[in-house]
């Protein structure tokens, strides 16, 4: 029936309260520090929206430019503009990277009149088939990379590049 708090109890509660507060003040930052990598938003691998509507695509590759905003390279923030060659194969949308697998020039669709229906690299006459397969006898040693593609609300979204899966 002693609803009164004794002096001893009062002191021990106060001490526990203050002590707990102090301990949490040191432990919480450590916990936050430990889980921080998990909470970081993933910069790469995110899909970037483009201006290209998916139903306007045909079987002929078109050039799609897109910009990755605020890419961080150390303390240096920049917008990176990127290009993809996008076309439709049946119902799937395919986006190929324009970076030549030889030495990194930019390839163009039908960039040379002599080679229709092919990607062409102007630097050393590298040639690729429509699916990105390098044509033997030309300098490139591998197929063009592919972008991760997703169609969101009718627009093409592009992610990071992955090795070609079509060849």
């Amino acid at each position: 029936m002693s609803s009164k708090v004794s002096r001893r109890q009062f002191l021990s509660y106060t001490l526990m309260g203050v002590g707990g507060f102090m301990v949490s003040a040191t432990v919480m930052p450590m916990v936050r520090f430990a889980v921080d990598p998990v909470l970081q938003p993933k910069g790469e691998g995110e899909l970037v929206p483009t201006q290209q509507k998916a139903d306007e695509l045909t079987e002929t590759p078109v050039r799609v430019d897109f910009t990755i905003k605020d890419r961080k390279d150390g303390w240096y923030k920049s917008d990176v503009s990127n290009t993809a060659w996008v076309y439709k194969e049946g119902d799937t949308v395919i986006a190929l990277s324009p970076v030549c697998k030889h030495l990194g020039c930019t390839v163009n669709w039908e960039g040379d009149e002599k080679h229709k229906n092919e990607f062409f690299c102007p630097c050393h006459n590298g040639r690729y088939e429509k699916n990105g397969k390098n044509i033997p006898g030309s300098p490139p040693l591998g197929p063009l990379d592919e972008y991760v593609v997703e169609v969101v609300d009718g627009y093409v979204h592009l992610g990071k590049t992955v090795p070609n899966t079509l060849v």
Binding site: C100, H102, L103, G104, C105, T106, C121, P122, C123, H124
Partner: peptide
Amino acid sequence: SLIETQFKGR
């Protein structure tokens, strides 16, 4: 820098 990205390999 634009020409560079276009013709990096040459």
